[in-house]
């Protein structure tokens, strides 16, 4: 799995951080998404897919 997050699209709602806290974080200065682990282990894949599904700005892309 490979994750991309579009920081231009991101609206900083933080739902990805709640869904997959080991993979996503928010920038200190403006709360915009940061990917901590762009190729996370399989155990986190479901959480990442959920994060992508609930992202209100469709800013998270997941490629398998």
């Amino acid at each position: 799995m490979r994750i991309q997050a579009d920081q231009e699209k991101c609206c900083g709602a933080g739902s990805c951080v709640l869904a997959a806290p080991d993979v996503f974080d928010q920038r200190e200065e403006d709360g915009i998404v940061v990917v901590l682990d762009p190729e996370p282990p399989a155990a986190l894949h479901d959480a990442v897919r959920e994060a992508a599904a609930i992202c209100p700005a469709a800013a998270i892309t997941v490629a398998d």
């Binding site: 609206c11 900083g12 933080g14 951080v17 928010q26 920038r27 403006d30």
Partner: peptide, 14 residues
């Protein structure tokens, strides 16, 4: 987005 981004840091999860 310009205005919202002035506030997003204040409400971020951490």
């Amino acid at each position: 987005a310009r205005l919202r981004r002035m506030l997003t840091a204040d409400f971020m999860v951490k």
